[in-house]
């Protein structure tokens, strides 16, 4: 047995060296390119892991998608990205529009899109893809709250991602916070952008909330913008935004889910402040 373990250790070493030579960063982290985010997270999020991105509501799914694409771009570098999508999403939030991906700084020719009929197929294709070390990132997009996506399924994805070293992102539009084996969980909602000349909408901006972090980081909120030219997240300048929407900015600080219109789609309990506290403890247990 000791001879075996020695051999295995040697093999692991040579594998690690080979991986380093092939250009993949030896340190398995994906950075956001934004110190305000990277530093508290300890230099970024783990590459070889499963991460969950929740859209705050169905209307915010586009923002969550944009955020995931940004993450995938930073994780994949020049490798292909595999995107698994359930058919129903196309009808509900529109199909993927490659020119829009170009506008975010990603070459759509590098995307492999797998369209699955049901959640079962989505998870199956996702697990299959997460095992393939040659991919840059895997985006898995099931619709709603499928029964099949339980702790076992997410653990399967997480193990596959850990073994292959491919960042796997589970993108969801759901209000339920199931137990899962994900390393981090984010909630993304759209954020008013920094207006350009003549009040035109500016760069994509997101309001991120870290709902859960395996490293023990407490729940936090950030506001970020995606910069296509640097392929990096950056900080939006808050002043301009506040001058345009003082009311909105204030409400976000204190009461993140109370914004009108959109949140009505998501079924949150009526006793909002109490539920927010309960949510925290629930997530801790899930880990």
């Amino acid at each position: 047995m000791p001879a075996h373990s020695q051999l295995l250790a040697d093999l692991r070493c040579s594998l690690a060296e080979a991986r380093q030579r092939s250009g993949r960063s030896a340190i398995g982290q994906v950075t956001f390119g934004l110190p305000a985010l990277d530093e508290p997270l300890g230099g970024g999020i783990t590459r070889a892991a499963l991460h969950e991105v929740y859209a705050a509501g169905t209307v915010d799914l586009a923002a969550a998608t944009g955020f995931s694409v940004g993450l995938a771009i930073r994780a994949a570098q020049t490798r292909p990205i595999l995107w698994v999508r359930q058919d129903f999403i196309d009808a509900e939030t529109g199909r993927l529009h490659p020119p829009g991906l170009v506008e975010l700084g990603f070459d759509p020719s590098r995307i492999l899109l797998v369209r699955a009929r049901d959640a079962q197929g989505v998870l199956r294709a996702g697990a299959e893809a997460a095992r393939c070390a040659a991919l840059g990132a895997v985006l898995i997009e099931p619709w709603g709250e499928p029964r099949q996506l339980d702790l076992t399924a997410s653990r399967r994805l997480a193990l596959a991602a850990e073994a292959s070293g491919v960042m796997t992102v589970l993108l969801r539009a759901s209000s339920r916070r199931d137990a899962s084996a994900a390393r981090t969980r984010w909630r993304v909602s759209a954020l008013p952008s920094q207006a350009l000349e003549s009040n035109a909408p500016g760069n994509p901006a997101f309001s991120l909330r870290l709902l859960r972090h395996r490293g023990g980081l407490a729940e936090r909120e950030w506001r970020v913008e995606w910069d296509r030219d640097r392929q990096s997240f950056q900080e939006p300048s808050a002043f301009q935004e506040q001058s345009v929407f003082p009311a909105r900015a204030a409400s976000t600080e204190t009461f993140p889910d109370a914004a009108p219109l959109s949140r009505s789609v998501v079924s949150f309990p009526a006793d909002r402040p109490a539920a927010a506290g309960a949510q925290d403890s629930g997530l801790r247990q899930a880990g």
């Binding site: 586009a62 529109g94 993927l96 529009h97 506008e103 952008s193 350009l196 909408p201 760069n203 296509r228």
Partner: peptide, 10 residues
């Protein structure tokens, strides 16, 4: 800023 959407309804 992006001039084309990321998701398109058809």
């Amino acid at each position: 800023p992006p001039s084309r959407p990321i998701q398109l309804f058809e």
